[in-house]
Structures are given as structure tokens and as C-alpha cells.
């Protein structure tokens, strides 16, 4: 079973979840006192750390949830992101926005976490069994959602990340580029390729967007 199958299971699982928040958020505005919070947090001030956490946790949790499709995994990834960030705050030199630095940690933690879990999953479950489970979950969803989830899961990792950040979470290309450490042009190209692939994969639903 590849990462894509695991991701498909995650997407299918998450597709059933009730909507409790708007689908996408505007980019988080950098607060004026963030720099002061960062200075205090660097010195181990727990209240400042909590302040930074409160400013950014929503976007991090939403992003990790989009990427994993599971509340448990998203919680783990979000926690690991903040623990890594606060433990390594001295490494943040302020060249980019703190949110970009945090997002880059979140993406890295999540992708590595998914890979690690995929390895564990493939050790614990024989391939056929995993595929059977995946098939069952997908088949129980509405066809369009299932097809889209499957197609997204089959996108290359970087393409999929850009697509979810941009189209699902409303990040700008500048924010994505900064978080992933690529140029804006690369981010745009990845999104364009991802969309092209998805368009072909969803061709049988063309009437949905052509009407």
C-alpha cells in the first residue's frame, strides 16, 4: 500500500465529518505584538507561548486535518508542530513570517508522520487486506466525493500539499511558497499540474462544472 492509499482512506474517513467551521479562512493577520511574544517565548515564558499558540493553532490544525483527514492524527501533528517550534524557537531568525515558519514545520511534521504511519500500517496489515479496507470505505461515500478524494490522494506529495493549501485552505501562493521553501512560480506550477490531473480524473463529472 502506498502513501496515496493511506491518504485515500484518510480522505474518505474525513469526508463524513460534520462541518463546524467555514471551509476556508482568510490568511491570518500578523499581530503587532507577535514579536514581543516571540521574545518572551524564547525565554521560556509559558504565557507568551500560549499567546503564540492561540494566534496560530486554528490554521495549523485545519491544515493538518486537511492533510491527514483524521482528528487524532491532526491533533498529534498540531501538537508536534508546536512542541518542535517552541523547542527550536532560537532557530527562527525572523527572515520570514512566524506563521510561514510554523506552516513549514507543520507540513514537514505531517508528511513525515504520514510516512511513518504508512510504514507501521504496511507492517501490521497485509497489502490485500489494506486495499480491501480502502475499497470498502471509498465505495460507501458518494461517488463524486470518493472519486475526488481518490484522485487527490493519487497526486504527487508536493502537488497534493499545494492543492490542499491553496484550494481547500485558501493559502496564497506567496504563503505556500514561503512555507514549503519554493518559489511562487513553483507553487503555481504545482497547483496547475494538480488541477490538470484532477480534471482528467474527474472527466466523467464534466457536466458538473460545465453547466
Amino acid at each position: 500500500m502506498g502513501t496515496s492509499t493511506l491518504f485515500r482512506i484518510a480522505l474518505s474517513h474525513g469526508a463524513d465529518m460534520e462541518t463546524q467551521q467555514p471551509a476556508s479562512l482568510p490568511p491570518a493577520a500578523a499581530p503587532l505584538d507577535e514579536r514581543a511574544l516571540l521574545d518572551r517565548a524564547r525565554r521560556g515564558d509559558a504565557r507568551a507561548q500560549r499567546g503564540l499558540y492561540d494566534l496560530h493553532v486554528d490554521r495549523i490544525y485545519r491544515l493538518t486535518f486537511r492533510m491527514t483527514g483524521s482528528d487524532d492524527l491532526a491533533r498529534d501533528m498540531t501538537q508536534d508542530t508546536f512542541v518542535s517550534a517552541f523547542a527550536g524557537l532560537d532557530r527562527f531568525r525572523g527572515d520570514s513570517a512566524f506563521s510561514s515558519w510554523l506552516h513549514s514545520i507543520a507540513v514537514s511534521v505531517t508528511l513525515n508522520g504520514l510516512k511513518r504511519r504508512k510504514r507501521l500500517w504496511s507492517r501490521e496489515h497485509p497489502l490485500d487486506e489494506a486495499q480491501a479496507v480502502a475499497g470498502t470505505v471509498v465505495a460507501s461515500d458518494p461517488l463524486l466525493k470518493a472519486r475526488l478524494a481518490e484522485a487527490v490522494s493519487l497526486l504527487p506529495e508536493r502537488c497534493r500539499t499545494v492543492f490542499l493549501m491553496h484550494d481547500a485552505e485558501g493559502f496564497t501562493h506567496e504563503q505556500i511558497a514561503s512555507a514549503l521553501g519554493v518559489t511562487v512560480g513553483t507553487s503555481k506550477a504545482q497547483l496547475s499540474r494538480g488541477r490538470a490531473t484532477l480534471r482528467v480524473a474527474l472527466a466523467s463529472f464534466a457536466k458538473e462544472w460545465e453547466s
Binding site: L11, R50, V57, R66, K145, R195
Partner: peptide
């Protein structure tokens, strides 16, 4: 693109952020 963005927004829609629960875990790990 517009249709896909609409659909994508419904993929893995996140629930409300469990702020306090996650913060307790973060602070204990720290």
C-alpha cells in the same frame, strides 16, 4: 478551477479546533 475549489473546501472539512486539549498536551510535552 472554481468548481474544484468548491469541492476541495468540502474535502476533510476540519471540526472546531480542540484548543485547550491540545494545549495541555503541548505544555506537558514541553
Amino acid at each position: 478551477d472554481a468548481w474544484l475549489q468548491q469541492q476541495a473546501a468540502q474535502l476533510n472539512t476540519p471540526p472546531a479546533t480542540p484548543r485547550d486539549e491540545m494545549w495541555s498536551a503541548v505544555s506537558s510535552k514541553l
